[in-house]
């Protein structure tokens, strides 16, 4: 029978297996920048930007799981990141008061990141349960409201510094840690998408009523997708807190979510590859613009403010919607991100 000779049963050399290629690619990427930094050949400022961009990869891909793959519309994503960031930073900085070195503190830090993810997932679950029966734009506004509620609540908790936030967070999020978490996040999200669960989410995006009527428990899967997305947002937030070493409620406001949203929609709705490219690309573009605008401000006689950066992003976002509604990559994926078994069934990008 023809269906039997699927790829798993054929012998593929190890180096041709996509998971292997992906892993090797990541290791090479890590090794290059790690070595460059070690020997002082890499500008620390740009190294920081690379770290930030990788965290944005986690935030963007996880938001894409909710908005792109399952077709819901959340604009409270950074609220979940805030929960993750505050949970882990409270543990490491306020409760345990960890030093920034040592194996013991480091393992506690990893634990705090995971707890941050779990806390965010839990809040995501609580929010998703009653609200995910709302459709489209109403869901958007409710998630926005919840995001704001999370922010207002954190603002009022004195234990975590209220509006002043938590300063002096130990810098545990090294390049290595961030690369590992980003790699794992992408792999986990990919594995979910290319499974029966992912297909259920896609069917909800395509036609929720039909999905329910072919046996998909749509509420369950919407909440599941939302919870998983929130989990990774929490992880991203926790890593971010231990990278920039200072968090306050304003960092996780509506505009912060919009920034991630821009990455999702410019990159491609329903494309992990698009989210990865957009997260890295836009983080760098943003820094480039900031430097460029500063220069421009110095050389021109009139004032050129940093606000132009956001003007450019807003124009990019509107232009994407007008001319390429599904984002630059649409729902195409890089081949290496598609499991072999699903190869023919999936679409590739360039």
């Amino acid at each position: 029978m023809k269906g039997k000779e699927t790829v798993q049963n054929k012998k593929i050399p190890l180096f041709k297996k996509r998971d292997f290629q992906l892993l090797v690619g990541t290791v090479i990427f890590w090794a290059i920048f790690y070595t460059l930094t070690k020997f002082g050949m890499m500008n620390l400022y740009w190294m920081h930007i690379i770290n930030v961009s990788l965290i944005y990869v986690i935030l963007t891909t996880s938001l894409n799981l909710i908005n792109g793959f399952s077709g819901q519309f959340s604009i409270g994503h950074m609220g979940f990141a805030a929960v993750g960031a505050y949970t882990s930073a409270t543990l490491t900085t306020i409760v345990w008061n960890l030093p920034s070195h040592g194996v013991g503190p480091f393992s506690l830090f990893i634990l705090s990141v995971i707890l941050g993810g779990i806390a965010a997932a839990f809040i995501g679950f609580l929010i998703g349960l009653p609200t995910l029966r709302l459709r489209g734009d109403y869901l958007a506004i409710v998630t926005l409201a919840f995001g704001e509620i999370i922010r207002v609540t954190i603002n009022s908790i004195k234990f975590v510094g209220g509006p002043r936030g938590i300063p002096g967070i130990p810098r545990f999020s090294s390049f290595t840690v961030i690369v590992i978490f980003t790699f794992l996040s992408v792999i986990v999200l990919r594995n979910i998408i290319y499974s029966s669960i992912g297909r259920a989410l896609l069917s909800i995006r395509e036609d929720e009523v039909a999905s329910e009527l072919v046996g998909v428990h749509t509420t369950y899967y919407k909440v599941l997708g939302f919870t998983v997305g929130a989990f990774f947002a929490g992880i991203g937030g926790a890593l971010l807190a231990h990278l920039i070493q200072y968090i306050n409620p304003l960092q996780f406001g509506f505009m912060a979510t919009i920034y991630v949203l821009i990455m999702v929609y410019i990159g491609g709705v329903g494309s992990l590859s698009g989210s990865i490219v957009a997260a890295i690309g836009i983080t760098f573009l943003s820094e480039g613009l900031r430097l460029g605008l500063d220069k421009l401000d110095q050389v021109t006689p009139f004032h050129v403010g940093p606000e132009w950066r956001m003007v450019i992003f807003s124009v990019l976002l509107v232009a994407t919607m007008l001319y390429k509604t599904n984002g630059l990559m649409g729902d195409m994926e890089f081949k290496v991100l598609i499991p072999e078994e699903e190869d023919e069934n999936a679409k590739h990008g360039a």
Partner: peptide, 15 residues
């Protein structure tokens, strides 16, 4: 009410 942007195979597998 077919899922338009999914493949024929996926339409079946979802069911």
């Amino acid at each position: 009410r077919i899922f338009p942007n999914l493949t024929v195979l996926d339409n079946i597998r979802i069911a």
